[in-house]
Amino acid sequence: TTVKLGDIKVTFDNPEKAKKYAQKLAKIYQLTVHVHGDTIHVK
């Protein structure tokens, strides 16, 4: 599962960890989390 934020891409083996990371980023940057299959976009 890949978390994308602009040019930053972080890949996790564990989808749950990816989701938590995405939510953490979203909170920090006051953005929202969008899940598209294996990719989680923070924008």
Rank of each mutant, 00 (worst) to 15 (best):
L31E: 03
A26Y: 03
K9M: 13
K19Q: 10
V10N: 02
K24S: 07
F12M: 02
E16L: 09
L5F: 14
T1S: 05
I8W: 15
A22F: 05
V42P: 00
K24L: 15
H41M: 10
V10F: 13
I40K: 01
T2G: 04
F12I: 02
K43H: 13
Y29A: 04
K20H: 09
G6C: 15
H34Y: 12
K43S: 12
A26D: 02
Q23K: 09
G6L: 07
K17R: 11
V3R: 03
I28L: 13
V10E: 01
V35E: 07
K27F: 11
T2Q: 05
K20N: 09
K4C: 15
G37I: 04
D38R: 10
V3T: 02
T39C: 12
I40N: 00
H41P: 00
Q30K: 11
Y21S: 02
P15N: 07
G37S: 04
T32N: 06
A26V: 03
H41A: 06
D13P: 07
K27Q: 10
I8H: 14
L25E: 00
T2F: 07
T1P: 04
T1L: 08
K17M: 13
A26I: 05
G6Y: 08
V42G: 01
T39M: 11
L25N: 00
K9A: 10
K9V: 13
Q30L: 06
D13L: 11
K17H: 11
D7S: 15
V35S: 05
Q23C: 15
Q30W: 09
Y29P: 04
V42D: 00
L5R: 03
Y29L: 12
T1C: 15
E16S: 07
G6T: 04
H34K: 09
L31S: 04
I8D: 01
E16V: 09
E16N: 07
T2M: 08
L25T: 00
L5P: 02
V35H: 07
K27C: 15
T32E: 11
I28W: 11
A18E: 01
L25Y: 01
P15T: 06
K27W: 09
V3A: 03
G6I: 07
I8L: 12
K19D: 05
G6V: 06
N14V: 05
D13I: 10
A18Y: 01
I8G: 02
T39Q: 06
I8T: 07
Q23M: 11
K4G: 03
K9Q: 10
K43V: 15
V42H: 01
A26L: 05
L5T: 03
H34C: 15
G6A: 06
V3S: 03
